[in-house]
Design a protein around this nucleic acid. Structure first.
Lengths: 336, 336
DNA sequence: CTGTTAGCGCGTTCAA
DNA sequence: TTGAACGCGCTAACAG
């Protein structure tokens, strides 16, 4: 058997040391420290004193093995560099910490394969996994979540799996209505990752809007999800003759804003721009970005709440859909 | 003993199931699956087939207990909402993942007490902890790290503890030299958290610069570390008569930039502004922000590298200091 | 090269 | 109310 004093040579303090010092059995120490009421108060006191004197805390790993739970949940995000996921992670992490749970994070680097692997691998060392905007195609997601339970989804749904998300459709409808009101009839949509679910939801909302508003034209331009993509799309957008651009997200909008201004065109006079997500920086661009607010940190906190219920064996709450709010700032104005 | 079928009722598959199916003993399964060369290749094959058929993977928790390592490290950050820490976490997380390690994150919410507690608590369920810009006063930090080993520090040092960090002093000196060259003689410094170590380092660099450049005046203005603080400082900065402002970080600089422009003043014509950190958004402000680049993701990757060495029992590498590079963009120009 | 056995550190049943 | 003994699932030392 591997006798393993710790790296620094300090002998690891175990429950046996506490038992010896308090003059009781191992079981009594365990019971006393876990608040089992069937222990003589005098012994409880003695045990607690001994534990304190030895600076003893039960090994979380050993407890995990015997109790079958780790007090830890895994969170898989497609990109830790994305402000939205950062906000979600922050809200989630703090909410979990408040309930004495730990958070294991993993960055799938936008890779579907990584996502699948990480989900499975982290699940084994945690009590559950929270998939944040998973990139997996629907059929694969449906298949994967089965082996992951308890699992919570953010910005996706799958069968009866608890989920939270922002209603991208209604948010986009609000943005389109806003542009329409300002007189815009030729609008371009800078699309994100082509076959992604998030992109599909936006396209659906656009199709519905166009159907309900004859005379309005919304052209899709393949773009991307980051600054560079938005900046690179600048020329195409300006050449399109559109008076307004709807960006897949704020990063794209900011890239576009930068490129358009660099080309000597004015926002919103020559072109109106709306983003999506309301990342912290959105209100600090020049002019400040009109966008739709997804309460990301709240989304994270709500995701934890769902997970917590699952872990407690409670009835999973209904899927929650937070309605993003349109925040009109300076990048939108009347059509030229 | 707690017999615990899993929540979903699926009987947990153990090494015993694999052994039975392959017709060998537990140890043979263990050896075969761990690549122990002293196993008959034929048996290895049989074991692997059985494992695959049963979709078996050894329980990480049980392995952790017996091996004395969890393949996980903890990362404590003061605020997951801070872009710099996000970038560090991202670099760290990906580097660790490449070495098959997992990352447990905890957000101390800028609380010194939380920081201390989280460090200790997470250490017990991981193989080591990485403290990111810890807010603990030096004496407490020195005391705490002892019980945390292996530990790596980011942006702080303590005795012989491996650490990585950016050389804030030389970065600030470069920024000041840049402003001085442009003819600026009246400069304001928007200070961060008053008694923080990061702020002290910046003040030291400023003092050294002023001493070496008579005739140049650098006034400290208490400010803060976020957008709001920078925006709120706008009036004071404009009223000060300074021709250039040195912000504690990019967030502050962007807030200031926004406020100054909202007040109808021009950047850099009326006021030059330099930030610090080169967060992703810095190049997308209008005009783009002049700042000093702290290679945050690289810092995270290097921190992991140090931790990895400690875990491997290797000689801890020398403390690494990355030199931030001055990136001149559009917010700095000749003094009025 | 393989199987048997002893723990890793704990929580918990069972008997006293 | 307490202690002895078992086992969570696995790896490693020790025979064979």
């Amino acid at each position: 058997m591997p006798r393993q004093p710790r790296a620094d040579g300090t002998p690891r303090i175990t429950i046996a040391d506490v038992a010896a010092r308090a003059g009781v059995s191992l079981s009594t120490v365990s019971r006393a420290l876990n608040g089992n009421p069937t222990v003589d108060p005098v012994l409880v006191e003695r045990v607690k004193d001994a534990a304190a004197a030895l600076d003893y805390t039960a090994s979380p790993v050993a407890r995990s093995l015997v109790l079958g739970r780790t007090q830890t949940v895994a969170v898989i995000v497609p990109d830790l560099g994305n402000p939205t996921f950062q906000a979600i992670l922050r809200g989630l992490s703090r909410a979990a910490a408040a309930d004495d749970y730990h958070v294991l994070v993993a960055d799938s680097a936008e890779s579907i394969e990584e996502e699948r692997v990480l989900a499975g691998a982290t699940r084994r060392r945690t009590d559950g996994v929270i998939l944040c905007s998973p990139r997996l195609p629907q059929d694969e997601l449906d298949e994967v979540v089965g082996g992951l339970r308890p699992v919570v989804l953010i910005n996706r749904t799958s069968g009866d799996v608890p989920s939270v998300g922002a209603d991208y459709g209604s948010a986009l409808a609000a943005e389109l209505a806003h542009l329409h009101e300002l007189g815009h009839r030729r609008i371009v949509f800078l699309a994100g990752t082509a076959r992604s679910v998030a992109n599909a939801a936006r396209l659906d909302a656009i199709a519905a809007f166009v159907a309900a508003h004859p005379g309005t034209e919304v052209t899709e331009i393949p773009c991307g999800v980051d600054f560079e993509a938005g900046a690179a799309a600048g020329e195409v957008v300006l050449a399109s003759g559109a008076t307004a651009a709807l960006a897949f997200n704020d990063l794209v909008a900011m890239g576009l804003l930068s490129a358009v201004q660099a080309a000597g065109r004015r926002v919103p006079d020559d072109l109106s721009i709306v983003g999506f997500d309301d990342i912290p920086f959105a209100r600090y661009t020049t002019p400040p970005l009109t966008t739709a607010a997804v309460p990301a940190a709240e989304l994270g906190a709500q995701a934890w709440s769902r997970m917590r219920e699952l872990l407690d064996g409670a009835e999973p709450a209904h899927p929650l859909t937070l309605l993003p709010e349109l925040t009109v700032r300076g990048t939108t104005g009347p059509a030229a």
